[in-house]
Simulated scan of single mutants.
Amino acid sequence: MTTTTTPEPEPDPAQVRQQVASMLMPGVVSYDDAKAKLEAGVGGIFITSWADPNLLTEPGRDIHALRAEIGRPFDVAIDFEGGRVQRFSHILGDHPAPRDLAATMSMEEVEAKAQEIGQSLSAHGITVDFAPVIDVDGGGLEVVGDRSFSQDPRLAGDYGAAFARGLQRAGVHPVFKHYPGHGRASGDTHLGEAITPPLPELMGHDLIPFEEAFVQAPGAAVMVGHMVVPGLGDGITPASLNNHAYGLLRNHHKFDGMAYTDDLTGMAAISNTMSIEQAVPKALAAGADQALWSSASDINAVIDACVHAVETGEIHPYRLQSGAQRVAHRLDSMQ
């Protein structure tokens, strides 16, 4: 008896291009820049700290006008944690750092404060806040410091979850960062390679806030940082490009929300060794649902590089489907 197998259908090139584009979140600096990148099909845009403030305030040339012109749902993200990381605070409001919030407020009060922040972001068309930081302070790193709620892992997670719930109540998508924990890394990923303690040590300390927060604020997203984790995969690849980091997130923590990378161009831990056209396909192949970057780039060149990675098998078809479906679900929820 002869058996035959039906070959897998060839993927539709237009669909592949649409899917990979949806998994990108480039930085934008102006209305026209944002419009061009959205017209290329990206699923979201990131308002950089050096963007034209008119993108948030100018009638007919702001985010609301952009939504009307583009005519499809898309995310608009910003870094707004409070304290030293709160972009355009003269427009969006000025709020205390996370450490100060935890020192002076109950968790219910922090949730209310985050809702206040979220309401301001939402009023200006912003749908994703790359906050809260739930790294555990205590490693002496200036890049963490008062951006962390606490040196106690469980308090860091509890307060982070309260902040996330407040954003959610305002209709803004919170993003826990920087998985799997930057607090005790050897350096700042903005400046170069940063190595965490070995994975077993992370499991007993730095990963605890993520475990707490994922349970207490379901539906939130996560940002995977650029730290190298000994014992996680080859112990050389930054977590944001490391399929073992995403495997830990999905399989160990049972996290099923959106996973973003940290900035792939504005941080030397990545940009010292690869271009954006190299980094983005690696991130998507590893498990990121949306690759984030801030620096100027040729959006079509990045999309082309991702399409090529699909065609050559670097990005597995299942990986493309799962990431694109998660983005589609996120965007559908906005309608």
Rank of each mutant, 00 (worst) to 15 (best):
D135S: 09
A77P: 05
A217Y: 04
T57H: 08
A259N: 02
G166D: 08
T5N: 13
I63W: 09
A259I: 11
S120D: 14
Y246A: 04
R184N: 14
P13I: 06
R154H: 12
G160E: 07
G192T: 02
L199M: 03
T104P: 02
Y246G: 03
L264M: 10
K282A: 11
R326A: 09
I195M: 06
G139F: 04
R184H: 12
S120F: 15
E211H: 15
H316T: 15
Q18G: 12
T5R: 13
D256A: 15
D146F: 02
M223A: 04
A291P: 01
H244E: 07
G41V: 02
A301M: 07
M25C: 12
R330C: 09
E211V: 12
S297L: 00
L167I: 05
Y31N: 14
G181P: 09
R147L: 10
V133M: 05
I315S: 00
M1T: 14
P59E: 05
D33H: 12
F80I: 03
I276F: 03
R17Q: 04
E58S: 12
F130G: 02
F163V: 13
F255M: 01
A21Q: 11
D289N: 13
V327Q: 04
G231K: 00
H329R: 14
H205Y: 05
D75V: 14
A114I: 01
G219I: 04
D158R: 12
G138T: 14
L202G: 07
I236W: 12
T237G: 08
H308W: 13
A164P: 09
A220I: 15
P26C: 14
G60S: 08
G323V: 00
G71W: 07
M1H: 13
A21G: 09
G235T: 07
R84E: 15
A68C: 14
P197C: 08
I45Q: 01
D100I: 15
D188Y: 04
P200V: 05
V310N: 00
E108Y: 05
D79H: 09
G27Y: 06
V307Q: 03
L56F: 08
S22N: 10
L248K: 06
Y246R: 11
V224R: 08
G247W: 02
I299E: 06
P13Y: 00
M274L: 06
S333N: 08
A309M: 01
Q19D: 10
Q168Y: 04
H182R: 10
R61T: 10
I195F: 11
F46S: 07
L284S: 01
H316P: 07
V327E: 10
G247K: 04
G171K: 01
H252R: 15
V228I: 05
M267F: 12
L284Q: 02
H226Q: 09
M105G: 06
S275Q: 13
T273W: 11
Q168V: 14
P53T: 05
Q321H: 15
V85C: 03
H182F: 01
F130P: 01
P180K: 11
A291S: 05
P7G: 01
A40Y: 10
Y260N: 10
A21C: 06
S30R: 13
L121C: 09
L264I: 03
R61M: 03
G27W: 05
S333H: 07
R319T: 00
V310Q: 00
V302Q: 00
I117C: 02
